[in-house]
Design a protein around this nucleic acid. Structure first.
Length: 505
RNA sequence: GGCCCAUUCGUCUAUCGGUUAGGACGUAAGAUUUUCAUUCUUGAAAGAGCAGUUCGAUUCUGCUAUGGGCUACCA
């Protein structure tokens, strides 16, 4: 068998949808696993839907995720665009026309629309084409005259009715569709001299030596048409194998996951932030939301595919090793972003404290205006990473290490600030002042000893102490905090709190 | 409406005729803890329905139901 070559063929009509990202990922995994090649091809055959910036977005998104291409990208720009291959397609359109596999049609959109409203379930096919305005009914001369006059036309594929067309799908097995339900699809339009997806797709896949077409399930109904086109063009023996992926569905309700669902449910459905150039409408992306690319890849890989065994955490390398089309599910997968968050948490946990500190340091400076020293920040990150899902969660967990509380959480005060607390804290203050070796171990030892000697309730003391230093009833181990804060700061905060809380009580 | 595809815990899924139907997310309870959170333990939770094939069906077949996709001079 020839070397595996797959392609990811997005259309630059907007930001790359997360489902498209998964399709790209599966193509990539399959290619890498088989030592094959991955090609990017921009399918911009609909000139009316072109969106500036979309192509760049697609490349940036896939690059961010670590999905690499062997062909189709140079210096960060796409090198294969269907709009730039017009002469190539025209050649095959002519071939089909000359061989009676296609014909020219002049029906205007309005005429077609009229037909559709006039006849229920109207379809341009063997049963209706002889009643339409095309080269079959007009004759060669009239057709040529109209074309010469510049009348807009399309080229339609001539489908012979009543033939069972079967294809072997790598995921679904044998799929059979009768040609009678296929319509005479438009393959080419004179308006912009561009083919439609159906023709361009077949021509390019053939010319580029594509061996496996891995795409979304929405293409399954038109796959028989594609099979027919391979036959018409004489390429049946080198036709690629097909694998139609299950769709990504809405987390609630039913239907395909859409852009709107992200806005509605509050999670990204795009890899990167995107601002629509026309409307200015913004859509949020995984990258900006604080997701790690490895987490997104891992999460997406499991949506529709499952490894042998119960493992779920996979690096890209492990995915390449384990991926298998035969283990891709057949049914659509509801998008469960809660699990996506869990994956991100896992990846965050696995990162070095220093790495995370480096990520959040500039963010904290920019957002809160606090310039945290790296060593302290790294320590604080290590103490709190277990409770964070995104890098942006950290500040809420560690701010008190860097900024003294100016006010105290009312609920915590009511619960933890007892009548004895002012006195307890004054005593504790004296104890702390007497400690020279203010390390975690020693401070803890001395304070706990003092509590034991006095017969105090540990919880009462420690919770009030926490309220004084943190301002809230949360945070890591108390002596981790005193250790980080240092003697001077600890005492200062304690004094201030005693003053403030006493008055307020 | 027509055609195609699908159908196991709430969700993602394992099982390739014989299992106490497994795992993960989420969820509930308990334990731990000086707080919050983590962590740990335990629990609840599924084969759409009806026939058929078979010694035996979640697994194979058919029908029904449900869901999804497609049905454009969009991809």
């Amino acid at each position: 068998m020839s070397k595996v070559r797959v392609r990811f063929a997005p259309s630059p009509t907007g930001p790359l949808h997360i489902g498209g990202v998964r399709t790209a990922l599966y193509n990539y995994l399959f290619a890498r696993q088989n030592g094959g090649q991955m090609i990017l091809r921009i399918e911009d055959t609909d000139s009316t839907r072109f969106v500036p910036g979309a192509e760049k977005y697609i490349i940036e998104a896939l690059t961010w995720l670590g999905i690499e291409f062997d062909e189709g990208i140079e210096n960060g720009a796409a090198t294969c665009r269907q709009s730039e291959r017009k002469p190539i397609y025209r050649q095959y359109v002519d071939y089909l026309l000359d061989n009676g596999k296609a014909y020219v049609a002049f029906d205007t959109p309005q005429e077609l629309e009229a037909k559709r409203s006039e006849i229920k379930n109207f379809q341009y096919d063997a049963t209706t084409r002889m009643g339409m305005r095309n080269s079959l009914t007009l004759g060669k001369e009239e057709t040529e005259r109209l074309i010469a006059e510049g009348t807009p036309y399309v080229v339609r594929c001539l489908i012979e009715p009543d033939e069972d067309i079967t294809l072997e799908d790598l995921i679904r097995g044998t799929v059979t569709i009768n040609s009678s339900i296929l319509d005479d699809k438009v393959l080419y339009k004179s308006a912009d001299n561009l083919p439609t997806y159906h023709l361009a797709n077949i021509v390019d896949d053939h010319l580029m030596g594509i061996t496996h077409v891995i795409r979304g399930e929405e293409w399954l109904p038109s796959a028989p048409l594609h099979v027919l086109l391979y036959r018409y063009l004489g390429w049946a023996d080198t036709m690629p194998q097909f694998a139609h992926l299950p769709l990504l569905l809405k987390p609630d309700g039913n239907g395909k996951l859409s852009k709107r669902d992200g806005d509605r449910l509050g999670f990204p459905v795009f890899p990167l932030d995107w601002t629509d150039p026309k409307s200015g409408e913004k859509s949020s992306g995984y990258r900006e939301a604080g997701y790690f690319p490895e987490a997104v890849v891992n999460f997406l890989a499991l949506l529709g595919w499952h490894s042998e065994g119960d493992d779920e955490m996979f690096t890209m390398e492990q995915l390449i090793e384990r991926f298998s089309l035969s283990r891709v599910s057949k049914s659509g997968a509801k998008f469960n972003y809660e699990k996506g968050k869990w994956f991100n948490h896992q990846y965050l946990m696995n990162k070095e404290d220093k790495t995370l500190a480096e990520i959040i340091k500039p963010q904290i400076l920019e957002q809160y205006g606090v310039d945290c020293p790296m060593d302290k920040l790294t320590k604080a990150v290590g103490l709190t990473k277990g409770r964070c899902t995104f890098p942006s969660d950290f500040w809420g967990q560690i701010h008190f290490f860097f900024v003294a509380p100016t006010e105290y959480d009312e609920k915590t005060r009511q619960k933890r600030w007892k009548e004895s607390s002012p006195n307890d804290m004054r005593e504790l203050l004296a104890v702390l002042e007497g400690i020279d070796d203010f390390t975690l171990e020693n401070t803890e030892k001395v304070v706990m000893q003092w509590i034991a000697d006095k017969g105090y309730n540990t919880g009462v003391i420690m919770n009030a102490f926490r309220l004084c230093l943190v301002g809230e009833g949360k945070g890591p181990h108390m002596f981790e905090i005193t250790d980080m804060l240092g003697k001077e700061e600890t005492i200062e905060r304690l004094q201030r709190a005693i003053e403030k809380l006493k008055v307020e009580n």
